[in-house]
Simulated scan of single mutants.
Amino acid sequence: MPELPPPRDQRRSYRIATVCLGNICRSPMAEVVLSAALEDAGLDDRVEVDSSGTGGWHTGEPMDDRAAETLGAHGYDPSRHRAQQFDTSWFDEYDLILTMDHANDRDVRALAPSDGDAQRVQMFRAYDPEASASDDEVPDPWYGGQDGFERVLAMVERTTKALVDALDARV
């Protein structure tokens, strides 16, 4: 498991961004699950979470219906999400940027203003105890059926548990 980057500013909450391609499936699912887990752990006053996509096609739109239905069926509230696009300003605002796949990771790192900013970017599943070097991405469920969203949720929940444990020790 990687080490969490230090906070950019000790006077504010630790800020995490999750990033996927369009910000309508994977990264908002991770945002919702991580936010709920932080609240359950009593860390929501010290850690904030947001999400974005590397592309702007869905900016302003709600979460994909299948992603929202999957979250809702498992007791999460997906209703507040509106898609937004990642840009270089996020590097100034976030302490940790978690990408869902290697393409997202490359795209985000390419925008990093400095090497220090790029070091704040990590793969989301780097915190997944079941991930391996050959299986470290959160697959995009958009082109598949409902089972893909269930699989993504299981990965996100498992990874979130380990991430919250790391955050609890850090913040």
Rank of each mutant, 00 (worst) to 15 (best):
M29L: 01
D168W: 13
T160W: 01
A68P: 03
M29Q: 00
L153H: 07
L43H: 06
W142V: 08
E93D: 15
A162C: 09
T59M: 12
D147W: 00
R170A: 15
V47N: 06
R158G: 12
E150Y: 03
E61H: 14
E157T: 11
D40I: 02
Q85I: 00
G55P: 07
M123C: 12
D44Y: 06
M63E: 01
R66E: 01
P78M: 05
R11V: 13
L43T: 08
G72N: 13
V164A: 09
A110D: 06
L34Q: 01
P2E: 00
T59P: 13
P2D: 03
D115I: 13
P129W: 00
P28L: 01
R80F: 09
D101L: 07
P113M: 03
R12K: 09
A68V: 07
S27Q: 11
G116T: 05
D64R: 00
P129I: 01
E39K: 15
Y94Q: 03
P141L: 03
D101A: 06
L96Y: 05
D77V: 12
L163H: 10
D95S: 05
P129E: 01
W142I: 11
E31D: 10
L71Y: 06
P62E: 10
T54F: 06
Y94S: 01
H74V: 04
I16H: 07
P6H: 15
Y143H: 15
I16E: 07
V47A: 04
D107M: 08
S79W: 11
L71H: 07
A112H: 11
M155W: 03
V121M: 07
E93A: 14
C25M: 01
D105R: 10
H58K: 05
V33N: 02
Q119A: 11
Y143P: 13
M155E: 07
E130A: 12
F86R: 01
Y14M: 06
D165A: 14
V49W: 06
S114Q: 04
G56V: 06
E48N: 08
P28Q: 03
R80K: 14
Q122D: 08
E61A: 13
A103G: 08
G148R: 10
P28K: 02
L4F: 14
F149R: 13
D117S: 13
S79V: 09
E137F: 05
A169S: 08
R120W: 02
R15D: 13
R11E: 15
V152N: 11
P7R: 09
P129Q: 00
E3I: 13
E150I: 06
T99A: 09
D50C: 04
Q10W: 11
I97T: 03
M29F: 00
G53H: 10
A41H: 06
